[in-house]
Design a protein around this nucleic acid. Structure first.
Lengths: 203, 203
DNA sequence: AATAGAAACGGACCAAAGTCCGTTTGGGGC
DNA sequence: GCCCCAAACGGACTTTGGTCCGTTTCTATT
């Protein structure tokens, strides 16, 4: 009769133990400070553990791998950006015309990716995958395309618009082919117009 | 008066020494056979060196890094594909209409990327970069877009078409979001039509 | 054929990621 | 407040990518 758990009927994953939570926080802080001091590629897992005052095993239990830790860091710094998109001022946030929002989104996303490029690269797989970021951006673009009355497979079209904003592509264009940033941005804007333009309204 | 080099006035990089070339070949063969036996992620650099009968230092001098070795392997297996694009039978090779060739190109590229996905992933940075593959595909698509009479910044548009065919994107769509392969292909075809369609000829 | 010096070689060595398992600790049940 | 055990911890250990430098081998030149 007596419920084994009073409230958390809804939380399938048993909540984190107090010490675990404290350590996670300490590790994130330690990692960030190490990165600020030595740069991303000189941050070692052992150093993070040491600075946080825990053992190395703990770091890996929390974050799986170096990439996982990087992804967590990235997630943290991107959440402010997500908030700006969802509820910040126009044109990035709600209130502007869909097309204006879409273009602002692209520019902002591009800039954000470049700003954190070292972190993004270090996060590798874990960066794009599951960790919230991709699915959020995909959903948002899909939504805006819907608002614009675009016909077709919206999830796929959203991907097509997002793909050229991913780091490997940007690095290719900017660092290897030496295209100026403005040109890349303009190219993306042009792409958006081509994708959005419907046969009916060919402007 | 006597020329220090008789013919190779044109070869800036002095040609490879005989033993070096032999070792390169042996290493490539060893690496490939190891991969066939144990899978890409169990192939260790030390094992490759041992099987080729050389020291570990030699492997790294030739290929820089594990990624470099993977990229070399990839390059090798992609060169047959490049040949098929440049001089194979239509519709992939020359002889078909540009649009037909472009669509065949996309399908083929997608299939090729998926077939070698482990290698591509293991090649990481070195895969996309300099190592021939990217620049070849980009040039080819640019050329086809030109043939189709597309206006605009062709190099950028080529990138926009290529980006959704890159492995990270495909993995996201196929493995994470569980889109069926056909749907992804159809989506890409649709994208091509949207990009190619000009305001003048809105079909 | 002898020789010099540049290039290639080998494998000991190092650093850092990731694993393992015996020990400690938090917190729900009594 | 006490007990229990699942969860968390720590740090030695293993693996592997990558470096270093003394030694060997190629090739051009005489």
């Amino acid at each position: 009769m007596s419920e084994p758990r009073l409230l958390p009927l809804l939380g399938d994953p048993p909540p984190e133990r107090r010490d675990a939570a404290r350590n996670r926080e300490a590790l994130l802080v330690a990692a960030q400070s190490l990165i600020d001091e030595c740069g991303v590629e000189h941050m070692t897992m052992e150093a993070v553990a040491a600075r946080a005052g825990v053992g190395k095993g703990t770091v890996f239990r929390r974050f799986e791998s170096r990439e996982g830790l990087m992804a967590a860091l990235l997630n943290h710094s991107e959440s402010a950006w997500q908030a700006a998109v969802m509820s910040g001022p126009p044109p990035l946030g709600p209130g502007a015309e869909p097309m204006e929002r879409l273009l602002a989104f692209g520019r902002s996303r591009l800039e954000s990716t470049l700003r954190h490029h070292e972190l993004v690269r270090a996060a590798g797989r874990a960066g794009s995958r599951s960790y919230a970021v991709w699915s959020f951006t995909a959903m948002h673009v899909r939504y805006l395309l819907g608002e614009l009355g675009v016909e077709g497979d919206l999830p796929l079209l959203a991907t097509a618009l997002l793909a050229p904003l991913e780091l490997p592509i940007l690095e290719q264009q900017l660092s290897v082919e030496k295209f100026p940033l403005d040109r890349v941005v303009d190219g993306w804007v042009d792409l958006v117009h081509r994708v959005v333009r419907t046969p009916d309204q060919p402007a």
